[in-house]
Design a protein around this nucleic acid. Structure first.
Lengths: 210, 210
DNA sequence: CCTTTTATGTAGCGATCGATACAGTTAAGG
DNA sequence: CCTTAACTGTATCGATCGCTACATAAAAGG
């Protein structure tokens, strides 16, 4: 089928290596030399297989969303209520953002903060806004179904939990361990509308899972 | 007194211009050409007055903490309780991070996320950790004074509010307006330990100021 | 005046940036 | 076998990076 000389490297593995580089250093601070070094290939192979740095980054980000970043959409889709869904998102984020198997924090949140290229910045901002919209819609659906008190503002609540997730990502980047992020998740869930109506035990640190 | 030729530009104003550049683009993405262009001077004047890019950035950051970033330490010092202090910090952050007079978000949080230089990253992380420690100490002081229920974990609570502030910074960067950040602040305050014991009215969106 | 000291503008340093030209290599189709 | 097409390694390209040498300009001290 394929005519010419076949490539001598595994495309998916090269993408994984590139993902780690972008995840660690961000879009701009990751150089072609750094990428080719990590991927074990030479520049012409990179450009032949992935187009250019910009397109490689987009492919990395889309791949990231389908793997590492899929837990949020999955929880929002599978859990029976918005509250359970968001609680699960926060708990899984605490685990995911501190996983020693890869760089800490979220690539979508971290990788294009200090970016000279406005369109890369805009693309990532668009993805963050899209994720926030999914949260908002899930809350709005529960509100329409009567699972939430009337008067709740889905936009405000979605912004709060989006901000919580982004703050957890920053904390993870700064070295906060999983248990501490889980404590953040617990505290954030106390802002949930219905929870104000029924008293809760005072926070006594993260719930131990062992 | 001063011997040689006096400089023809205002050092403080040049620092302000440099601050805006670093604030907008971050440490690495801000070039010497961009800095000198914004400051209205030539490279030799920059190096004579500020040392190099690294030292100029540190001076910018210290100046930032004494001006734009001083509201947090001020609130934590002036308010009678940790709760009032943190609530004020969040409210002032909502205003500060969305002020149209300067770039959105917090320079300490934003400016060295994608950074090839580990020591710049470490310096900024150190400043974030120091700010979090101030919050923790304020909470611990209230706990010791009996203003908070026993069992409260000052570290967990401080991490939560630090994450909230960092999330608000990211939301501001992404264009969230002040009122939405104030709604985030209101929701975050519902995680305050003592608030769980007394029911609160359900969130009905940001409190209108008009 | 003249010397000393500092700031300024021009012009360019070596290094690195993202991206390629080119020749050589390895496969499939005929 | 021969042509065609694709991939690979070397060796760059022009542009930009942070930074500075150098000559000139403008002040104070003598």
């Amino acid at each position: 089928m394929a005519k010419g000389r076949p490539r001598t490297f595994d495309r998916d593995e090269a993408l994984d290596r590139a993902t780690m580089e972008f995840w660690r250093h961000g879009y701009e601070a990751t150089s072609i030399a750094g990428l080719t070094g990590a991927m074990g290939i030479n520049p012409p192979s990179l450009y032949a297989a992935f187009g250019d740095k910009r397109r490689l980054f987009t492919e990395v980000v889309e791949r990231y969303q389908r793997s590492y970043g899929a837990f949020a959409a999955r929880a929002l889709d599978e859990e029976p209520t918005a509250r359970a869904a968001i609680e699960r998102v926060l708990r899984e984020a605490a685990a995911e953002y501190t996983d020693p198997a890869h760089p800490w924090g979220c690539l979508i949140i971290c990788a294009a903060v200090n970016c000279g290229s406005p369109d890369v910045e805009a693309e990532m901002r668009g993805r963050r806004e899209a994720s926030k919209a999914v949260i908002r819609d899930r809350i709005a659906a529960d509100l329409d179904a009567g699972h939430l008190p009337a008067g709740v503002d889905p936009d405000a609540l979605a912004t709060f939990y989006a901000a919580t997730i982004q703050g957890m990502s920053t904390q993870a980047r700064d070295g906060a361990p999983r248990e501490r992020l889980e404590a953040v998740a617990d505290l954030a869930m106390r802002a949930w509308p219905s929870s104000a109506a029924r008293p809760q035990p005072v926070d006594a640190g993260p719930s131990r899972a062992d």
